[in-house]
């Protein structure tokens, strides 16, 4: 067996693995509408795509002489890729490419990218609203009652209760929406007031 065929095999494997990886990343980003919002994910996908094209080009160049095409260039390429340094590195690259492909279950984290970031930001906004409208109100009511200002404390408690209801209602989503509440949606994991 001529040693350039080792490079041919390795480049073929690399190209195929990189095409699959690029497709997985870019199609996931496209489906979740993050092409503009996740530039890192897009760039990563395109790195794999362009590298796949490069390695595919190496492989094609090596086999073209079989069909009498670009014979001189193809034979020169075979001589270059016969160098053990080249096919050894290509071989290692191919193994790493296959290994990376087996880690496909972790690609969603790369795709989620900025979506995950947006979810965290949304939760922080909700947390701030609960803090400002509920925690602050309860803290004020408690301090007032502890200072003997019963009426002021109870009034503040009433206000805070109303604000809490509004927040919860808003979080539940509007009436008539696609996620309208139904039987089973209000089931709790444990009785209310039990969690510390």
């Amino acid at each position: 067996m001529e040693t350039w065929t080792l490079s041919l095999g390795a480049n073929g494997v690399i190209a195929l693995a990189y095409f699959i990886i690029a497709w997985t990343i870019l199609s996931g980003i496209g489906r979740s509408g993050q092409i503009l919002a996740n530039p890192l994910g897009v760039a990563t996908g395109f790195i794999f795509l362009t590298c796949a094209l490069g390695h595919a080009a190496h492989a094609i160049h090596l086999v073209l002489p079989i069909w009498g095409l670009e014979v001189a260039e193809g034979l020169a390429a075979r001589e270059h890729f016969a160098d053990w340094h080249i096919w050894a590195i290509d071989g290692v690259t191919a193994m790493i490419a296959v290994w990376y492909l087996t880690l496909r279950s972790r690609f969603p984290a790369l795709v989620r990218g900025s979506k995950l970031f947006e979810d965290i930001r949304q939760r922080q906004t909700q947390a701030l609203e609960i803090h400002d409208n509920v925690v602050q109100g309860l803290a004020e009511a408690k301090l007032a009652i502890e200072r003997g200002e019963q009426e002021a404390g109870l009034e503040k408690l009433g206000e805070t209760l109303e604000r809490s209801r509004k927040i919860i209602t808003d979080l539940m989503g509007p009436a008539g929406s696609e996620i309208e509440l139904g039987p089973g949606d209000l089931r709790r994991r444990a009785a209310a007031g039990g969690q510390k």
Partner: peptide
């Protein structure tokens, strides 16, 4: 930013 809390803390 809550006037009621400022008042209560001041009195305390």
């Amino acid at each position: 930013d809550v006037p009621g809390l400022r008042r209560l803390v001041r009195y305390t």
